[in-house]
């Protein structure tokens, strides 16, 4: 089966610093890959290179077998790449519903529709409702995104990606900064997405118990390089993870 997302020798340097160093890796439908590594390992940068927020210095990105290396983020999104950001990235002055509706609208390809006002677009609104329900924000639809608590903003971030209905989901620490009782909503949601064998899921996550319970495969980044790649049990047991990853982070086994 062709990988839905693949990188070949992908690299980027910021000045003298190589943040992502020749990473070759392929992600397949039906697979949830956890990407782990210490702070500054290059996980977010690797994501940015794949989803088009950053352009690679060298190497290739393939999306569903198509070379998208020179395409921008909008085109990659249209090809089915969904991204939820580590640093919450919303439309602060718009309502929660409008934030998600912008995603369903993009998904439906309604870009330059000038004349049909929103109330006539029931289907898009219904889908936005569904996405909000999936993360438990249905009661806060009319709130301004900026007025939400941090945890709710994280949920909205995820709801926007769900509403985009991508074939490749990229979660960048979706539960970071959430209170303990808010986390399960997101994890259940990811578990549900995982049941759909046509979806490819990438998850950057620091919490090892989460990784263990969800991942089919773990990729370890270290200093911008791919340090390990394999099934969870093997990777977690490998010396490089024990030393380079688990060793440096406090509380990772919690």
């Amino acid at each position: 089966m062709t990988p839905s997302l693949e990188t070949r020798d992908l690299a980027i340097r910021f000045g003298g610093h190589v943040a992502v160093d020749a990473i070759s890796c392929a992600f397949r439908p039906g697979e949830l890959t956890a990407i782990v590594g210490p702070n500054g390992a290059g996980k977010t940068t690797y994501f940015n290179l794949m989803s088009g927020q950053l352009r690679a210095t060298s190497g290739v990105v393939l999306l569903h077998g198509v070379d998208v290396t020179t395409l921008g983020a909008p085109q990659r999104a249209r090809l089915g790449l969904g991204r939820a950001f580590q640093l919450t990235n919303l439309f602060p002055a718009l309502s929660v519903l409008e934030n998600v509706r912008l995603a369903t609208q993009a998904q439906a390809g309604v870009h330059y529709e000038l004349t049909r006002p929103w109330p006539l677009r029931r289907a898009l609104i219904e889908r936005a409702y569904a996405a909000l329900e999936a993360v438990g924000l249905e009661g806060k639809r009319e709130r301004r995104a900026a007025a939400l608590s941090h945890g709710d903003q994280r949920k909205l971030e995820v709801a926007m990606m769900i509403a985009l209905e991508p074939s490749v989901f990229m979660f960048d620490e979706p539960t970071a900064g959430m209170s303990v009782d808010e986390v399960p909503v997101i994890l259940d949601l990811i578990a549900r997405l995982k049941r759909d064998a046509s979806k490819t899921i990438l998850l950057v996550e620091h919490k090892m118990d989460v990784v263990r319970s969800l991942a089919d495969r773990i990729v370890v980044l270290h200093h911008g390089r791919l340090a390990a790649d394999g099934d969870p049990a093997t990777v977690i047991a490998s010396p490089i993870v024990q030393e380079a990853y688990l060793g440096v982070r406090r509380g990772t086994a919690a």
Binding site: R83, L90, F91, L94, L102, H111
Partner: peptide, 16 residues
């Protein structure tokens, strides 16, 4: 409005 609020995010949703 989305572009005004956050052009980066608007692009990530697929808006050119």
């Amino acid at each position: 409005e989305a572009i005004r609020e956050n052009p980066f995010r608007a692009e990530a949703l697929g808006y050119r």
